[in-house]
Amino acid sequence: MSGLLETRRLTRQFGGLRAIGDLSLSVNRGEILGVIGPNGAGKTTLFNLLTGIYPPSSGEILFEGLPIAGLRPSEIARRGVARTFQNIRLFRQLTVLENVRIAYDSQIVCSPPDALLSTPHARLREKESINASMELLELFELGSLAENRAGDLSYGAQRRLEIVRALALDPKLLLLDEPAAGMNPSEAMQLTDFLRWVHGKFSLTIVLIEHHMQMVMALSDRIEVLDFGVRIAGGKPDEVKGNPRVIEAYLGTEGELP
């Protein structure tokens, strides 16, 4: 196992608020890393830093050994970091197929003149992108909904589509921001199986932010715990579960994790 992603003393300041402070993490190739912590711990900020939506105030981010801090989000996405959003951010007005194709488009080479004049090269790439995107949709049983507007899908299907869209980037690292938000326990268990299947099928490395503890514990190889932008604990799920600092961060001084 080697490091796929590494952060070194990563810091992000919002005015006087230190959302992420001196955070040094590493993500191993092929693992599922859970990131937990109370609300406002800086988990989503961490994802926004990793995907280039915010530049870090200081510190480094290395992906496959190369620094990616300061690159545009689209460039980071092209290098193989895909994500989903806590509040679903699909292109609602567009069709399911178009949603997937937009992500797949980063893999096709087609210059603006080619596109404007619809050259044979451009048309070939178009066909390729349709076929590849349809194949992906069918694999996730969304094929029959390809021509529906993404905003018209059910909540569960929208969550699934967001993951499919991220996979269309052909990522090496998938960042999932609360994929089980708004799901009941049985739906969350289904999602757990689903994510395990995705992880194997696409040989991915996954970083998962989640509040459903059962799900995090079941899926993660390792867990990192954040509080106020600082790493307070980390390790195997069982170690984290019993760690008094974690329990304190979540529940106050006494109690037990669910």
Binding site: P73, A77, F85, L90, F91, R92, I102, A103, R165, A166
Partner: peptide
């Protein structure tokens, strides 16, 4: 539709 999501999806 969503500029941030567009960038994150490689656009």
């Amino acid at each position: 539709e969503d500029e941030i999501a567009a960038e994150a999806m490689g656009v």
